[in-house]
Amino acid sequence: MQATRLDTARIRAARRVIDPIFLDTPLYCCEALEPHLGCAVSVKLETANPVRSFKARGTELVTSLLTGVDGRAAAVVCASAGNLGQALAWSGRRRGLDVTVVASRSVPAAKLDRIRALDARLELVDGDFDTARERAAAIARYDGVRLVEDSLDLETCEGAATIGLELVAAVPSFDAVLIALGGGALATGVGHVLKSLAPDVEVICVQPLGAPAMTYSWRRRRVVTTGPTDTIADGVAGRRPIPAVLDDLLLVADDAVLVREASIIAGMRMFLDHAGLVVEPSAALGLAAILEDRDRFAGRHVVTVVCGGNVDPDAYRRWIGVS
C-alpha cells in the first residue's frame, strides 16, 4: 500500500484504549433481507452502544490523549451533525473534560437533546455543518482549546478502523462492504484495514445525490466543493472535503456511488420491516446502493455498516409512512 496517514499497528492498539462497550458490535447475516435484495446482507450494527453510532470509537482515542500528566482536564470543541457531538460528550464526560459542541440549528432535536443530556455545552449556529465547523475552529483559536475535527484528526479514522478489524475476523468471508461516506473517517478507516488484511473485499462508499462533494472529489482525484446540500442524510451532508482525508480515501476505495433520497427511505423501511431496526438515513445508504444496482450485487455476500441510529422520531415516521 502507498503512503497513508493510517497505521494498522496503531489501529490494533486502539482496541486497548476504547471502552469495550463500543467494541465487537453485532455482526450477523440478516436472512430476511435476502429475498428482497437478491444478495446475502450482513449487518454490522454500530447502533448497539450508548451513543448509537460508531463515532465513540474515535472520540475514545481522542479524549484518552487529552488529560495531562498533572491530571488536569482539558477543554475540547467540535462541530457536529449530531453523532460526533454525542460521542465526544460521552467520552469527555467519562474523562472529566470540558466539551463544547457546535451544531447547526437544523440538526434533529433528538440529537441536540442527547448532547445536552451528556453535559456538553451546546452552541447552535445558523447555516449548515460547514458553518458549524468554521465556528468551532474560531472557538478553538480564541479560547486556546483543542479542536476535534472529525476525519482530519487521525484518531477519529483509526478508531473507526477498529470496525474493519472486527469484519476481517468474521466468518464466513464476504465479497464487498458498503460504507456511508461523509467526512471520510469511517470509509478511510475501515477501507484501510480491509485493503491491508483482506484486499479482495470490494470497498464501496455510498453518498446521497444531495450531498456529493466527497464522491465527486474521489472521482476527479481532487477536492471538489459543492453548494448547499439537500438530503435527509444529515450525518453525511458536508460540502468541503478535507484534502488529507481524500488522499487516504483514494488509496482504499474501489468505488464511490451516489443514491437517491427515495432509495434511502426505502432502505430505512426495509431495515424496519425485515430487521426490526430503526436507523438514521445515513445508515441506510448501503441498502440504497443495493436497491439501485441489484445486478451488481446479485448472488454476492455484502456487509453494510449500520453507522447510526439517532433520528428524529417525527421525521422518521413521516419518511417511512408509519403513524
Rank of each mutant, 00 (worst) to 15 (best):
R221F: 09
G235P: 03
C205S: 13
D143K: 13
T162K: 07
R52V: 12
T231P: 09
D98H: 14
R141C: 04
R318A: 15
V245Q: 02
P199F: 08
T131H: 14
Y216I: 01
G309H: 02
A198M: 11
P212E: 11
A81M: 10
V101S: 03
E31H: 12
T304H: 05
A169R: 13
L45N: 14
R221H: 13
A103E: 10
R239T: 13
P108C: 02
K55F: 09
F174T: 00
V148Q: 04
G183Y: 00
D98R: 15
N49E: 00
L6K: 07
I18T: 11
T215S: 14
P199H: 04
A103F: 10
R221S: 13
A244V: 13
D153V: 13
L277E: 11
L88A: 04
R222I: 00
V171A: 14
R94W: 04
L194F: 02
V303Y: 06
V203D: 06
S217F: 02
A213M: 02
V17I: 15
V43R: 01
A14Q: 05
K111G: 05
H301C: 07
A117L: 09
A40M: 13
D150E: 15
A140Y: 07
R317Q: 11
E280G: 12
A140M: 03
A138L: 13
I115N: 07
G183C: 05
D312P: 06
G238K: 00
I320H: 01
N49Y: 00
D128Q: 10
G127Y: 06
I21C: 05
N310G: 07
T4F: 01
G267N: 09
G309A: 09
D234I: 09
E158K: 01
K195T: 00
L84K: 00
Y28S: 11
A283T: 10
R300M: 07
R133P: 00
R239C: 08
R15T: 14
P108A: 01
R52P: 04
P228K: 09
V190Q: 02
V76C: 14
G184H: 03
D128Y: 01
A14I: 04
V252F: 09
A117S: 15
V62H: 08
L37T: 06
G164K: 04
R146I: 10
T4G: 10
V43W: 06
V311C: 02
P50W: 08
F271L: 15
A262T: 14
G210S: 06
D234E: 13
I264D: 08
T4V: 07
G82I: 08
K44T: 08
V322C: 12
T63F: 03
I265Q: 08
K195M: 06
C29A: 15
I163V: 12
L65D: 12
T63H: 04
R260D: 15
M270Y: 12
T304P: 05
R296G: 12
E166M: 00
G184I: 01
R72I: 03
R116V: 11
L88I: 10
S282G: 07
R95T: 08
E166A: 11
L66W: 06
R133I: 01
G184D: 00
G210M: 09
H192N: 09
K195I: 01
R294P: 07
D126S: 14
S104R: 05
R116G: 12
T215R: 14
S91Q: 04
R72K: 14
K55W: 05
R12E: 13
T215G: 11
E202K: 12
D248R: 03
A120W: 05
L154W: 07
